[in-house]
Design a binder for these strands. Structure first.
Lengths: 336, 336
DNA sequence: TTGTATGCGTTATCAA
DNA sequence: TTGATAACGCATACAA
């Protein structure tokens, strides 16, 4: 009563196993036999053996997701969670599922592990660091790979990213257009792509306006206390506005500035990046860049599936747009 | 130069494919041939085909992890992230990897999907709701399953959980022993196991002390604003202490009480559950229960691996201990 | 449209 | 210790 193989089921339905296979996979079968076989299929709840299918087709339907990040950073904010949700949603329709590899081995081991497992048809990997042997190794491996984020040297790879340069340029331009010229920037962790790109966007906007692109730059590390630590330095250099690499840092800057009696935005305007939940409720509400992380995840899934469908096609390269959210922290600035 | 199969490699090494297989899997081979074959193995970087191996052995080395929770709750605090890290660590040694299924389908679809994929040797599933068809379906399926959390009806299943009853009993007893008799409890979301069990532990401690176990109970839903909303009600009933189902709720209770000029712990002692990061830094620092979520994840992995090694063995049932962390919110209470 | 036969790359059984 | 050889369950080219 419980058919384990196509052969078993074929016997029950009075056909050959090839016919059953055709019914299961949508081959050409007469309507009559299709119905008969389908009925037996439904009655018995037969499930074809995945491993056998993979062996003969060479595809498992499994997508690998690699997030080799430090545990402390991996789910610190909702970033990676949103990413996973997006990927999961984007995969749900087409793929069997996703294998997840986190950072509990060395990168070399993880790479070797993924390669030798051979279980995934393709890989999605987060590429947030400028120098990442794991990303390099994956790219060198003969397995379709989509990066989330990208470095300069990934120009010919398949990737999904937000346009960090353009976003940073936009927010910086916004600060300049509010009438301020001494616009500062607190960077992210050096060596990360987002930090580099946002700095570049900042510099471009400053150069566009004929302003010194280096004078008001201070190095941070994405954390709240970086903003607290570094904002006073910029204050001493006389900044009228600060573009912070993310909302945490902006919050830190708030604390440092307000502790010193500096009015935001009256004395110094502040902008962040990410539009985290608290950004809208800070006093004053924070001007920031909104990025749709979930959409990034979904796009990564879509790109990988496209890549799997056409392995020899052009690389999938997608830069998703962001949105400048203007709030009180940059409003009614120096001009009022 | 690139052997794709055992046969290829066997030819290169001048042996039969059976011998190569024995070298790869640690069968009995003479030291001389083993060395020769191993050398070719290393030189060529040969990787045996996983699907073929799975087909014949019936085991894939893949473990499925099912976290079918609402996106809003899934990574709200670090709970699920810690869980994943624990599982991932616990699996790293032995398993090829973990497949992750989130809640982007209906539970029925997810169940069907997992069953038909047949790709996982075993499943780890979070069981936080009293009524969960997905958990029931998995338990009914012929695949080894370990629950994280458990319901009454899971008494004969394999599960890993913290001892919620005992923990709640301990913290409630602590409040009583501090000299207070009108001890209240704000519950978690009705229908969740943790809420039920913590309420039960609270009631046991009250009954032990000869106190009314129902009078000071108010229903909450795990969220901060539940504490804010419900604490005033308990205050009107004259409570001297409140055991909150988690730290968020406790924080909410803080806000409501302090807004009304109620001193903590002078007028009302407050205790939480989870020992989240902020618990130690609240004014006053919060007495709470510390649970090692990561250890839960690791244990779930270990239990599942044990189950896979001995499918007919006894169910794996583990209750991990928790720790009462006493801080100022319950110190120097009514007796001073 | 349907059935037969072959091969996918392993592991496992059985002789040698 | 080693080598043939038979499964494992499926898809598919080829024949009918």
């Amino acid at each position: 009563m419980k058919p384990k193989t196509l052969e078993d089921l074929a016997a029950l339905a009075g056909v050959s196993r090839a016919t059953v296979s055709r019914v299961v996979n949508g081959g050409s079968v007469s309507e009559r036999t299709r119905r008969r076989v389908q009925q037996v299929l439904d009655e018995t709840g037969f499930r074809p053996n995945r491993a056998a299918r993979t062996l003969v087709t060479g595809r498992s339907g499994v997508v690998g997701v690699v997030m080799h990040e430090e545990p402390t950073v991996l789910f610190k904010d909702a970033y990676f969670a949103d990413l996973m949700h997006g990927i999961s949603d984007g995969l749900a329709e087409q793929a069997t599922g996703m294998m997840l590899w986190l950072g509990n081995r060395s990168k070399a081991d993880t790479l070797e592990h993924i390669r030798s497992s051979g279980i995934a048809d393709g890989i999605i990997v987060t590429a947030h660091f400028r120098d990442d042997p794991l990303v390099d190794g994956l790219r060198a491996a003969p397995i379709p790979t989509v990066l989330i984020g990208h470095r300069r040297e990934d120009a010919d790879a398949s990737y999904v990213d937000i346009d960090n340069v353009e976003a940073a340029r936009t927010v910086t331009r916004h600060l300049i257009e509010s009438g301020r010229t001494r616009v500062g920037h607190i960077t992210g962790r050096p060596g990360t792509v987002a930090a580099d790109d946002r700095l570049e966007g900042y510099r471009l906007a400053m150069l566009d306006a004929g302003l010194d692109p280096d004078r008001y730059v201070a190095v941070g590390n994405y954390e709240r206390h970086d903003g607290q630590r570094v904002a006073p330095e910029l204050l001493e250099r006389g900044v009228e506005a600060i573009f912070c690499v993310n909302d945490f840092v902006a919050h830190g800057a708030y604390l440092a500035l307000q502790e010193r009696g500096v009015d935001i935005p009256g004395d110094v305007a502040v902008a962040g990046f990410d539009d985290l939940e608290f950004a809208a409720t800070l006093p004053p509400p924070l001007t920031t860049i909104r990025q749709d992380v979930r959409a990034v995840g979904m796009q990564a899934a879509a790109s990988l599936l496209a890549l799997l469908d056409d392995p020899d096609g052009a690389p999938q390269r997608v830069l998703l747009p962001t949105e400048l959210i203007i709030r009180a922290s940059t409003d009614g600035g120096a001009s009022t």
